[in-house]
Design a protein around this nucleic acid. Sequence first.
DNA 1: TGTACATCAGTGAACGCGCGTTCACTGATGTAC
DNA 2: TGTACATCAGTGAACGCGCGTTCACTGATGTAC
Lengths: 211, 211
Amino acid sequence: MNDNSTRAKPAYHHGDLPQQAHQLALDTLREHGDAAISLRALAKQIGVSAPALYRHFMDRESLLAELAITGFQALRKRLLAVDQAQPRQALIDIGLVYVSFAQEEPNFYRLMFGGRVLPKGVHPRLDTAGKSAFRVLENTIARAQQAGYIKPMPLMLVTAAAWSLVHGLAQLSIDGHLPITEAEPQLAQGVLTLLLDGAVADHEQHHKDNT
Amino acid sequence: MNDNSTRAKPAYHHGDLPQQAHQLALDTLREHGDAAISLRALAKQIGVSAPALYRHFMDRESLLAELAITGFQALRKRLLAVDQAQPRQALIDIGLVYVSFAQEEPNFYRLMFGGRVLPKGVHPRLDTAGKSAFRVLENTIARAQQAGYIKPMPLMLVTAAAWSLVHGLAQLSIDGHLPITEAEPQLAQGVLTLLLDGAVADHEQHHKDNT
DNA sequence: TGTACATCAGTGAACGCGCGTTCACTGATGTAC
DNA sequence: TGTACATCAGTGAACGCGCGTTCACTGATGTAC
């Protein structure tokens, strides 16, 4: 009687408010960006009074932080799925996966890395989630280096370079500055390869140790 | 009589409204970010009614676009100041200058590249300004390539890589993800060098042509 | 040099909006005995 | 098994806010003759 579809329609106690709010906020984020998320609108759509949400979320920003955490977990999961057998291919693939995540979920990505929305240090769980996604990238590089594929140099330096490159690619392409689509990742692939092999012409390689 | 200090204080006709509004908005942007800019607040601070601003700016977004244009011009100017004598040094310096601009003017940089605020294609003058700043970077690379310093490959590929790298560095460092400060640009320098020389160990170079 | 007139750059009031958040409350549920 | 009570999850009303923008207007300025 009260469970005819997937969800009951309880009169007073909703029973599933936090999850449903989270899900709806997530949909809104993906479609319209973080700026479009408002607790009032969310409550209205769910059919619940606005203050009800405050039982489950400290404030608007906490909700955004939870969404961002979800995003980092999703990103991490995708990065973990990359085949690690061949160092070179693993490095390229992980970059491509990173970029394609941003392309598939631009609004998610912007929330996660916007800076404006969720400053670092305010939501510890968020920082942790971000770090653990980053660590997948870092581990891949570390492995490649241990295998002797990457030059011996501070891990920090290589990861900073790799992360900067993929982050830049991601941002520029979701803002329409680079002609990269999911269907045409050639440019992204070329760029990643460039970091591996270097831009400098072979006959100029003696310059290397001058800097 | 009406010109005792630098500025007159005319009763009705302000005489300098657009410039003063632009300047004040610019200060607000730098200090508090684009979200803090409101036409009403601006008008209030200047001591003029809010609708007065609509004589000079189509709407809020147009004002933001003008600010962003100013930003791109400033960035371009700095990039142009880089010494182009030595290809390698020019490439590194232009990257460092780019990153340090973002660090000095994070809110400016976010407005210019935020994506959320000013979508491409809406303000043609803005797009032009962005392109002409970008062209300085592109020209530097083209020169280095013509000098034989950069491998022969599509210019687009190298510029995409370089731009992505510096953009990523800039973004990550202003969001506090990388320990780069103006006083300590070593990491930035190391990262830029890495793109030039490549990450792959020398004895693995035979992999190069496999990809 | 003076005057009529067009144009420009302001004004004050108002529209309509949605937001986050707090308050004192009530209805529903779970738990100890 | 039944009942008293604590706790939890909602409610409706309200506070206070600032925003962008439009409207009909008026005061100031520049221009033609």
